[in-house]
Structures are given as structure tokens and as C-alpha cells.
Design a protein around this nucleic acid. Structure first.
Lengths: 229, 229
DNA sequence: CAGGATCCACTATTGGATCCCG
DNA sequence: CGGGATCCAATAGTGGATCCTG
């Protein structure tokens, strides 16, 4: 068995811990926390997230809460191309129709998840085997007024469409920075739902995602601010 | 022989003439002005421009001047995809090093060429044979203050690089809306130039082009304004 | 060659589909 | 199934190379 890492007691402790693993590989960290890293990339989806949760001491319980409950910080690993730009979109939250219906922006799951995020970059050149990919310099993101405004505008547009029952018309094209995409093991997956009453229901699970161009801009800002300090 | 079309005497006459050919094909217009339209797309580069010059009565002479000298209007055909967006960039002018050196923006060839442009859209789905492609609704473009500002900023950046002798470092990547690209029959073509004195010279001819995203935005604006009138 | 432009191989981006684990 | 995400086929975009005519 491996050593369980305790939850960090302060933002500073979390950041120091995150910075201390910069430069290490997923393979090295996997050994440390007892997670085996698959050979094939396709078998390793999510493994970086799982490893870093354990390495940094995320609270493994209650998943309706942030990863670091006491600090109110959400952990996100983010795959970076050699250029430094995100290769993939970032999953934020699954969509619950009922929750969307009677919630406004500032009480939404998306708002809560994004209030304070620790981004841990992971090298993601597809030629590099999963276990040899290195961790980068982490940054703590608290959205600026402008960033919140972009997120709110997209969320509200999508919330209105869902409220109207235009759910099936929502595609990944909508939203400048926040988009809705399928979120399931397979497109055959269906969420159980009463089909009676003409009640609006997803035919399949979907989630909110941040576009790569947006997270790329956020990281660029955080790097620039870090450099000037 | 065919009937030569006289130069239009007013903007209004030119616009009416342009609007009157909307919906007709390049094949139909080619017959009217004695220009044969090739089968293959690759053999027909520029043929749309030539046909419309003749159909609209452009002044065929002095090429340092606008197509319609008296009206100070430049004619540009622009290939549109089914989506309504430009498929290609728009050639503006060849670059003369000597002219760039001792000219400022408001005396530049680019500035003069773009002061007033008649855009004639031509259908450009690659599956449609050249002679069956239809003319669209034409618009007269006079750049807004914002559009001029974008153009000026790009032109000045490029002019500075040329002035510095960084000519070989200029690639098509530079410029938000205006870019520099090769302009020659072949990349083997060389412009004659004295190689003495270390004087800056192009190794090959290049030209200024408007990016498709920019001309697309311009056309979208013109359509919107036209609709609201 | 200058003026009229488009071709097209390559790269970047997108967004629907999918994978693992507990 | 929900939370951790990435895969990858298809599309859009870029920009160097090229074609025709007078």
C-alpha cells in the first residue's frame, strides 16, 4: 500500500505541494500513490486527474463539493501541447435539467466549480507515452470580472434554451467560452427519464465544458502575472 | 466580336449594372464579352475578374489607377462558399520595396486601392463548373473608421519590417486583416534586383492580401446595413 | 511582368463519441 | 452512473505555390 496524503491546510500549502511535483512524470507520481499508468493513451483517460487528486491530498469523498473542501478549491489537470496551449476542452460539470430550471447563475454548479480552480498542466504530446508525461507549473485561477462575464453570458443563453425545451437544439457550437457536449460512456447511453407529460428530458447525458481557447487565454494571463511578480 | 461596354458615368449607374447581372452565370457573361470560360478550375484563375471588368465597363487602360478611373472605384470579384463566407483571400496590390520605403499609409497603394471597392460575389462551390457559377448581389465598400484602423496597423507593422530589412522574415502569419504572401507565376520566379550594396530586395515577388475572415466580416456588415434600409 | 486571382497540402480546431474507476 | 477526462474523424483555416492574359 501507499502513503495517503492529508488534505492541505492552506492555499499556500496546496500551492507548494503542486509546485513541488512540477517536472515529475505521471509514472513517478503513479507509483507514489498506487495508480498504474496504462501504456495506451486511450486507456488512460482521467488517470492524470486521479493521480493528482491523491498526490495533492484532495478530499476523496462528497463529489458535490470542491476537491479541496476546506479551501473551496477545485482541481483540474489540463493537457498542454508543446506550444503551451491546451489540447483539450475542460470538463466542468454534468447538466441536471431540474437543477438548471430553478437555479440562477450565481447558484449554479458551474459558478461554484469555477470560483477557485487549481490548474495543473500536464504535458500531452501524443508521441510521449502517458507515463513519461511531465507535470508543469500549476496556477490558481480566480476568474476576473471579464472572465466571469463571458461565462455568465454563455451559461444564461444555454439555461434559457434548456428552460424553453430547446434542449435537442443545443450543440457544441454554442457558447463563446462555455459549451455543452455529450458526457457519457457511449452515445447509446440514455438517462432514465419519464417520457410522459411532454416533460423536457435529455436523451443522453451532457456536460458543460470550457473551450481550449479560453483556458489557453486564462493560463497565458496567469503566466504573465506570475512573471511580472 | 462583341459589344464594348462604356465606362459607367456614376456610382448609381455602376451599381445598377452590377445588380442587373446578379443571378447570371460566368458562362453567360463570358459569351456577352467574348471571354471563353475554361472547364477546369485551375485554368480559370482570374477569369471571373476579367469578365466582370468588361461586363461592367471598367477602364481597361492604366493599371496604376482604379478600375473605374472617373469614379475612383476598384473592382474585386470575391469567391463565396455556400455559407456566404469568402473562400479565398483578396489580392490588393503587389509590393514595391522602393515605394514602401518612402511612402506613408495615406499615400500607400493599399490605402488608395481600398478607399472605395465594388465587391462582386461569385459562387465558388468547387463542385460547380466554372461556367455555371452565379454572380451574387454586389456591394460598394467604403471602410469604416474601425476597418481603416485595422488595415493601417497591419500595414505599418509590415512597412517597418520592410524598412528594417527584415523582409525575409515576413510570412503570411503576420497581420490581423492584411497579410503579405508570394505573388508570382512560380516560386522560382525572381524579381531582377541589384544585389550590390547589401540593398534590401525581395527574392521573389510578393503582394498584400486581405484575409477571408476580414472580407467576410465586411460583407456581413454591408448585407446587414442593406437589409435594414 | 503586372494584374486578375484560385489551388491545395498541410495544420489547427471542433465537437460528437468514448474510456476508466469506484 | 458520475466524476476524472481524452480520442479522433471531419471541417475549417492558413499560407506558400501556382495559373492565365495582354
Amino acid at each position: 500500500m501507499t502513503h495517503a496524503v492529508p488534505e492541505p491546510k492552506s492555499e499556500q500549502e496546496l500551492l507548494h505541494r503542486a509546485w513541488s511535483v512540477a517536472g515529475l512524470t505521471l509514472g513517478e507520481l503513479g507509483v507514489r500513490v498506487g495508480v498504474e499508468v496504462p501504456e495506451e493513451g486511450v486507456r488512460g483517460k482521467g488517470v492524470a486527474g486521479t493521480i493528482l487528486e491523491r498526490v495533492l491530498g484532495a478530499t476523496a469523498a462528497s463529489r458535490a463539493e470542491p476537491d479541496f473542501v476546506a479551501l473551496a478549491i477545485e482541481l483540474k489537470t489540463i493537457p498542454l501541447a508543446a506550444s503551451g496551449k491546451p489540447k483539450e476542452s475542460t470538463f466542468v460539470a454534468s447538466i441536471s435539467l431540474s437543477a438548471m430550471a430553478d437555479t440562477d447563475w450565481e447558484n449554479s454548479v458551474v459558478y461554484k466549480k469555477l470560483a477557485k480552480v487549481l490548474f495543473v498542466p500536464v504535458e500531452a504530446a501524443s508521441k510521449t507515452p502517458l507515463r513519461d508525461r511531465r507535470i508543469g507549473r500549476s496556477y490558481l485561477w480566480v476568474p476576473t470580472v471579464e472572465e466571469w462575464e463571458l461565462l455568465r453570458a454563455d451559461w444564461e443563453q444555454l439555461a434559457v434554451m434548456i428552460g424553453r425545451g430547446d434542449v435537442e437544439q443545443i450543440t457544441g457550437h454554442l457558447g463563446q467560452v462555455l459549451q455543452v457536449r455529450p458526457k457519457a460512456a457511449s452515445s447509446r447511453a440514455r438517462r432514465r427519464a419519464p417520457d410522459e407529460e411532454g416533460a423536457v428530458q435529455w436523451t443522453m447525458p451532457r456536460g458543460f465544458y470550457l473551450r481550449p481557447a479560453f483556458t489557453g487565454a486564462v493560463l497565458a494571463r496567469l503566466r504573465a502575472e506570475s512573471d511580472s511578480r
